[in-house]
Amino acid sequence: MKTDFTCGFVGLGLIGGSIARAIRDFYPDSYILAYDINQEALKAALADGVINLSLSSIGKEFSGCDYIFLCAPVSENDNYLSQIKKYMSPTCLLTDVGSVKTDIHRHIEQAGLSSQFIGGHPMAGSERTGYINSKTLLLQNAYYILTPCEGISQETIREFKELIASLGAIPLLLSYTEHDYVTAAISHLPHVAAASLVNLIRQSDSPNGIMKLIAAGGFKDITRIASSSPVMWQQICLTNGENISRLLDDYIHSLIQIKKEIDRSGAESLYQFFDQARIYRDSFIDASSGPIKKSFTVRIDIADEPGALAAIATILALYQISIKNIGITHNREQADGVLQVEFYEESSIKKAAEILASKGYTIYPK
C-alpha cells in the first residue's frame, strides 16, 4: 500500500484524534485534513502537527481523500453521510468508529455507499474525552473490529486491514450483525447489569448509607463500568436494543432458574452453577484463578516494541516489587493502558506507580 495517502476525519475527539495521531506517526508523508465542530480541537491538532488542514465545514476538500474516518457522535451519522457523499471520490474508502454497527450499515445502504464502506470499532477508550486526551498508544495492541459491506472488494478489505494492523491495532473481521450481537453480550449487557446492581443497592440501602459505606471488593469490581457515560449508554441501548433485549431475556431466565435453586436449597445445582462459571471465567486469557475478587492492578502505556515489557518487569524487580500477573490488554474499550500489571497486595500499587512514573511511564490505576 502507498504511504503518501490523503486521509479525512469528520470528528477529531478521543478516538478520531488517536487514529489521526497514529497515522501521522506511522505515515509521516500522509496528508490529513479534519472537520470538527470544536474549533479548539482543530487548532490543537494543527499545532501538534497531526493534521495538515482544518475545516470549518464539510466541503470539496474531502474529494481528494483516499480514506475518510467518520468519528462524530452516532446520532449525527445520517446528516454527515449525506454531506460526505457529495464529495467522495469513487475510489475513496469510508469507515466509522462506532460501537454499534447495524445502524450505520443501514444508513450506508440507503446512501448507496455499500461498495465503499467498511465499518470499524476500535475496542479502546477512556473515561477521558476529547482530542486533548488522544494518543497514538490508544490503538496499540487493541482489537479493531472491521465490518465490511457485502459489496466491497476483497482487495479493498485486505488493504484496509493492513493499514489498521500497521497502526499497531489487531484487526478482526466480523459481519455487522455478528458484531452487534457479540458486543451486546460482552459489553452492552454487562453495563446494563452493572447499572442495575448499583441501582438495586441505591434503592435497598438504609438511610445512613451502610451498604454504600462497606461496598468493596467484588461489588466494586463488577460494577466499575456503571460509572460510564449515561449519554453514550443511552444511545447504545437505543441503537442495539434488539440484541440487548434478546440477551436480557436469556439473562433474566437464568436468574429465575438460579433463584429457584436457591429457594429449594438445590445444593448440587448451585455448586454446578458456580463451578461452570469459574471454569469458563478462568479460561479467559487474562483471568486469574479462582472466583472474581479484588485485584491490585495498574495499567501502563508502553510502545509495542521489543523489550518494552521486559523493561517494566526489570524495573519492578530491582525495587523488589513482586508481580502476580502481567499481560497485554487487547480490549480497552473503557480503560486506558496497553499493559496490565497485577500485584499481590494493594501497597504495591502506589509504590510501583511512583517508580514507573519517575521513569517516564504513564500510569492508570484500575
Results as ranks from 00 to 15, higher is better:
Ala216Thr: 08
Ser134Gln: 10
Gly151Ala: 03
Phe219Val: 02
Ser204Ile: 06
Gly151His: 05
Met232Gly: 01
Ile214Val: 15
Ile157Ala: 03
Gly120Gln: 04
Ile118Phe: 07
Lys135Leu: 14
Gln235Val: 02
Ile225Asp: 04
Tyr181Gln: 08
Pro148Arg: 09
Cys149Val: 10
Arg224Pro: 04
Gly119Ile: 08
Ile164Gln: 03
Leu138Phe: 11
Glu178Cys: 10
Tyr131Met: 02
Ala194Glu: 06
Leu200Gln: 10
Leu146Ser: 01
Asn240Ala: 07
Ser206Tyr: 10
Glu127Asn: 12
Phe160Ala: 07
Asn141Val: 02
Ser196Phe: 14
His179Arg: 03
Leu173Cys: 14
Lys135Cys: 11
Ala185Gly: 10
Leu238Glu: 15
Pro230Asn: 10
Ile164Asn: 01
Leu197Met: 15
Leu137Arg: 08
Asp180Leu: 07
Thr239Cys: 05
Ser227His: 05
Gly217Ser: 05
Gln154Phe: 08
Arg246Gly: 08
Leu189Thr: 06
Ile164Ala: 03
Lys220Asp: 14
Ser204Gln: 11
Phe219Met: 12
Ser227Phe: 01
Asn243Cys: 04
Ser153Ala: 01
Lys161Thr: 15
Glu150Cys: 07
Gly168Cys: 04
Thr239Val: 02
Asn208Cys: 12
Gly120Glu: 03
Pro171Glu: 01
Gly151Arg: 01
Gln140Lys: 14
Asp221Arg: 08
Leu174Tyr: 13
Ser196Pro: 07
Asn240Ile: 02
Pro171Val: 02
Tyr143Ile: 13
Ile214Tyr: 15
Gln235Arg: 05
Met211Gly: 11
Leu172Pro: 00
Lys161Ala: 15
Ile152Arg: 00
Ser187Glu: 14
Thr156Ser: 15
Tyr144Val: 00
Ser187Tyr: 12
Leu137Asp: 02
Ser153Lys: 03
Leu172Cys: 03
Ile186Asn: 05
Glu155Phe: 06
Ile222Glu: 09
Thr223Ser: 15
Ser166Cys: 08
